[in-house]
Design a protein around this nucleic acid. Structure first.
Lengths: 242, 242
DNA sequence: CGTCAGATTGATATTCATCAAGATCGGTGG
DNA sequence: CCACCGATCTTGATGAATATCAATCTGACG
């Protein structure tokens, strides 16, 4: 099995059992691999992609740019995320997808995904599920931006990322690589660069998290979760019949 | 056909053609009707609903409440919205749904929706689509809270609501009913009540919108859209093969 | 007429953005 | 090896945006 499908299966299997024949269907999908350097645009806003992009390694984000030069990163993606699976249904991209680090992706043609939706109901629901989990995360982001302090937003983001990365085997013992600049972080948190810097320092001062440039170490996950109101329900990391 | 299924079909048909036999499948779904008074909780956070809620009349919202008493309304729902269709896959609610006005809803059992997903691929994609449009709207909300001024958030919300209500026949000639208190509005916009009040006044002062308690009149939609950066792409109101 | 929810206003405190400099660090050419 | 450079991080100072507090106003309704 290709690394791309392997990590996708790992991600989906955390939510419900995938049958061998379902994994097989996934393994037989066409894959057009591609590499993007940090900062590159993977999918352009307003484009009509003919294939969906599965992130295999690196960090990517959905981005909305404004006329005044401001930018909001509305979602952060980790390996195993089927970043624009929804493009299968939405057709026209209402945002762009950018590489926050060097990224490896594969593109899977919409036609073949649609074929799965015609013939494999449970696997279709698993793909549907993956878009609804994305939506759950998005909802949480909305609540964070609306009613949480900068420190809570940042701490919550760290908790979330840790669990998401752990689910695909990319984090353990409280540690994960997070190669992101504070400027990009400010576009996620909806803050100015200066304020983001001060918030990172504030988080460090709590001693709950150590953050040395590209490595984040969560020293006390439970305390961090408590302090930021983190409740992992929305990540749906419990296997359920779907 | 029941009013519930009628309005659902009207909403879906704006996105792609529904075949008569697909409408038929929807019409044969069991419906448990229910009424909720303004302020009532329709679905509780952390519950495991056995059915999904279709909003037939009135306004509802997803709500996330915080320990400190603050509340964020992460999404606004209008008639025709299948408010918690995603509950079919997510199982456990990570937020509550509340009635912002008196509401009529019907509940459709998950078992029957799952049956559709087993036998009617295109209709399944249409339901999937409806959850991804919800997600698009949520993404937009995130961008609004992160990088837009209060006045832009409010104006953008008005533009969006107008088009969504028009799509199901509940708005015309720039007018629609919007029975919401400024306190609730502040929970949508992520602002304090006082600041929300001043923002509403600021919007009125532009003369682009008249707002007399429960009736909103958009005087110049294009100008309002321009001023708030509104681009309707994300609402997917164009029919496409899905 | 009294009451109550919602809208509005003014005053003040806090948070956050912006502006303008430095400091740090890895890489690169001489 | 060293001087330089650009990207990133950090700091201080200032002003604008927003929250909070405390009234007051308004209209619907018993």
């Amino acid at each position: 099995m290709s690394p791309a499908i392997d990590i996708l299966c790992r991600s989906l299997s955390r939510r419900d059992t995938l049958l061998p024949e379902e994994m097989d269907l996934l393994a037989r999908l066409s894959q057009r691999p591609a590499q993007y350097a940090k900062g590159a645009e993977i999918i352009a806003e307003h484009s009509r992609p003919p294939a969906s992009c599965l992130l295999v390694s690196g960090f990517a984000a959905r981005a909305v740019s404004r006329a005044n030069g401001k930018r909001q990163l509305t979602a952060l993606h980790v390996p195993g995320d089927f970043v624009d699976l929804h493009g299968l249904l939405l057709r026209v991209m209402d945002h762009s997808v950018v590489a926050l680090s060097d990224c490896t992706v594969v593109f899977v043609p919409h036609g073949e995904l649609r074929a799965i939706s015609e013939t494999a109901p449970h696997l279709t629901r698993m793909l549907w599920l993956s878009t609804t989990i994305d939506a759950s995360i998005q909802r949480k982001m909305t609540a964070l931006l609306g009613r949480h302090t900068p420190l809570q937003r940042l701490g919550h983001l760290i908790c979330e990322l840790y669990l998401r990365l752990e689910a695909v085997g990319l984090a353990a013992n409280g540690r994960f690589r997070f190669p992101i600049t504070q400027s990009e972080l400010s576009d996620i948190l909806g803050l100015s660069l200066v304020h983001t810097n001060r918030t990172v320092q504030e988080l460090r001062a709590t001693d709950l998290v150590a953050w040395d440039h590209t490595n984040v170490t969560v020293r006390d996950f439970d305390a961090l979760a408590r302090a930021t109101g983190f409740d992992p329900t929305y990540l749906n990391l419990t296997p359920e019949p779907r």
